[in-house]
Design a protein around this nucleic acid. Sequence first.
DNA 1: ATTAATTAAATTGTACTCAATATATTTATT
DNA 2: AATAAATATATTGAGTACAATTTAATTAAT
Lengths: 143, 143
Amino acid sequence: MNDDTLKLKNQLCFPLYACAKEVVKKYSPLLDAIGLTYTQYIAMMVLWEKKSMNVKSLGEHLYLDSGTLTPLLKKMEAQGLVMRKRAEKDERNVIVSITKKGEELKAKAYQIPEQMSACISLPPEEAKMLYQLLYKVLGQISV
Amino acid sequence: MNDDTLKLKNQLCFPLYACAKEVVKKYSPLLDAIGLTYTQYIAMMVLWEKKSMNVKSLGEHLYLDSGTLTPLLKKMEAQGLVMRKRAEKDERNVIVSITKKGEELKAKAYQIPEQMSACISLPPEEAKMLYQLLYKVLGQISV
DNA sequence: ATTAATTAAATTGTACTCAATATATTTATT
DNA sequence: AATAAATATATTGAGTACAATTTAATTAAT
């Protein structure tokens, strides 16, 4: 409640906000080269691993809702990276699944994580610490 | 270059991106109560401290450019929180300065940092560690 | 079985965010 | 002084991101 309480330098939220933004910005040229945006990239990472998933579940993995995902996935469908199809068992669900073209894109994406870690060169222990602290906050906050 | 390289769980960028988003989202109801968005809030923090600053310099403090700040500051001017005025010495600069109403808003904002830290309850050493790691990455990346 | 409640996507509207470009002003060069 | 280069904002367009609402489908309750 003193005079420093509201200084930007004393907030934890701000470096979090700014750092996330700058990191995503740093990805842009790398992702441009394979025709993805950052949001599309993290969606593809889930689909490269899981092959297929409904929108709701994809949103839980990515912390995104249908308002963001629906138009994003439609664009990715238009690019031929994914297919969207209502589930037969429960037609409320839209199943998003990766296409052959989407699978093939993975080969081009392999280099991206290492190119990025060259930009953000934290020592391994510090990177691990940061990773753990971020997931700790993420776990607490979404309660 | 192995099969785990592109898994979401192995990226440092993702918890950073998701955590920043969730934290900002957690601020929303608190900031709604005083009529600010998160971006307006961090801009106000700079102005509560510095009183006055040109757009360029404000953008350097916040890691934002004129494309974001110009419309943001116009809205804040319309709300009576700030004034915008071309500098007399160098008319390329727009000086943003806080108004009486903007100053008065500070009293209502004092409670927000503590309300937020109740939501994100990291032990002090861990919060400090996270803070330092984020600024370290931020410093490296913007080179 | 019919109605009510719940769930999953989609839609709408508001607010960033940034790249790229345009405009106006100032400074540096010739 | 006239021209070129640099600087600070503003504008435009594309892409999120989310709250709130709508629609359609499913499940629960009577």
